[in-house]
Write a protein that binds this DNA or RNA. Structure first.
Length: 463
DNA sequence: AGCACA
């Protein structure tokens, strides 16, 4: 007469387990807080935190079943409910007998994150977008993406676990801003945990994997095509040969675009070696030289069609230059050679998670701007969020983009701002007086800060 | 408030 199995979900008939399921935890409840709550009852051998859609559940595993039973029993009969930070925590036996994750006893967070990108297919989120987002927290060494039952996933390798933890804390449960996603994707939340890996084995630069520490790693040609093709269209249209030098045409140039601005924007993707800006057909163009084709390809893909400034200004169109090595003056208002040692700035390393020394925010301006305010200050003690000034948007003129209204002639310094309303903060480039004698951008970014940054040109979005 | 990577 007894019916079949599968029905052990009933609250009072759950089979005991040394694994307990805890719900209604406060947001971002730490493992330490869980341990504080549970350790009076026994030895905790494993935990799994930030579980569930709201990240407010956790699992905790005792070394012995009796310890779990004692904890459940205690709170079942206690007048005081289990609490963390004053919030009642609901405890029951897990329906599993052990926590299966990579961190067994005492294991600490690693330097490699496992990121599940929910609600998207692999093609929706390019590896470059992932790189962009995670680079906000430090140098991203490697990325490997794959599709598994859990969905589209990425392993992201940072220098150290601290950096990885910062990224995880800030991004777990958040969504990649919509403007970095294809139209049809409404949201894609990141679920982040730690991988057991410490060093990913990337064999090719491809649309599925990158090794940013090794620019000379062979490129899987078909794979790279795969990432670039979608922007062109599936008609298999012939593309210009790739190059390590990008040609940027700047459209709707309401605001000045200086060498420093260009450098700031393009440094997000790697070392910029040289820059030359010039005018052509009344428009402005820039050549940006990277050390390698891969970096250029990443920058091209990420920035194409995006605006340097909020409001549709200074829209970038990118193609590959035929040049491979620019011959430019080391330091003029139209060009820069960053490979020359005379400034002493070259010794500054490339943003390996050292926000103050390296151009960290520049290195990921948009990523930083994506998560202002919302990210706890602890996540970014310094540069990243601080560099973002939310007032920039409020203060920026809101008149619609006026393609074609830009006079087409050279950017004329101060008198060229007729359209610019007098109220509010001046546009980033309005400080034209300082433009010509602007120091290398490390010296400070009064106007090198491209407000909304490269790929965004739009206010941050949260959802 | 209700169960998790391969």
């Amino acid at each position: 007469m007894s019916s079949s199995s599968g029905q052990q979900q009933f609250r009072y008939t759950q089979t005991p387990s040394k694994v307990l399921h805890l719900r209604n935890l406060p947001w971002e409840c730490t493992e330490e807080e869980l341990v504080e709550l549970c350790k009076p009852f026994g030895k905790i051998v494993n935990t799994k935190c930030n579980v569930g859609a709201n990240r407010n559940q956790a699992f905790i595993e005792f070394s012995d079943l009796n310890q779990a039973i004692s904890m459940v029993s205690y709170f079942a009969s206690s007048s005081e409910p289990a609490q963390v930070r004053g919030k009642t925590v609901y405890i029951q036996y897990s329906n599993r007998q052990e926590i299966v994750n990579n961190k067994s006893t005492g294991d600490v967070a690693g330097n490699v994150l496992l990121v599940t990108i929910e609600g998207v297919e692999a093609g929706d989120v390019s590896i470059d977008v992932i790189h962009l987002v995670f680079s906000a927290f430090g140098f991203v060494h490697k990325i490997a993406t794959f599709e598994k039952a859990a969905g589209f996933q990425a392993l992201i390798q940072f220098t150290d676990s601290e950096t990885a933890a910062a990224a995880r804390n800030a991004l777990d449960g958040r969504s990649i801003p919509r403007y970095l996603l294809p139209e049809h994707v409404n949201s894609c939340h990141l679920r982040i945990s730690y991988s057991a890996h410490t060093d990913l084995n990337i064999k090719f630069q491809s649309h599925r994997s990158r090794d940013y520490t090794n620019p000379y790693l062979p490129v899987n040609p078909s794979a790279i095509e795969g990432t670039l093709q979608p922007t062109v269209g599936p008609d298999g249209k012939k593309k210009e040969p790739e190059s390590n030098v990008l040609l940027a045409s700047i459209e709707n140039m309401q605001y000045a675009v200086t060498v420093d601005v260009i450098h700031t924007v393009f440094s997000a993707f790697g070392t910029v070696q040289k820059i030359a800006i010039f005018e052509k057909n009344g428009g402005m163009q820039a050549l940006i030289q990277y050390p390698d084709v891969t970096t250029a390809a990443v920058a091209k893909e990420a920035l194409e069609g995006h605006c340097i400034y909020d409001g549709g200004y200074c829209k970038l169109h990118l193609s590959y230059s035929r040049h491979t090595d620019l011959n430019v003056k080391a330091h003029s208002d139209k060009s820069r050679d960053y490979t020359i040692q005379d400034t002493g700035l070259l010794s500054i390393p490339q943003a390996p998670g050292a926000p103050t020394a390296a151009p960290a925010w520049q290195s990921n301006p948009q990523a930083a701007s994506m998560y202002p305010g919302n990210v706890g200050p602890q996540a970014h003690p310094d540069a990243q969020i601080g560099a973002w000034d939310p007032n920039m948007h409020g203060g920026r003129p809101r008149f619609p983009p006026a393609p074609g209204t830009y006079p087409g002639q050279a950017y004329v310094p101060s008198s060229s701002m007729p359209m610019y309303p007098t109220s509010g903060a001046p546009p980033p480039a309005a400080a034209d007086a300082t433009m010509q004698q602007m120091p290398p951008y490390y010296g400070g970014q009064p106007n090198a800060r491209p407000a909304g940054p490269p790929s965004v040109g739009r206010p941050p979005m949260y959802y």
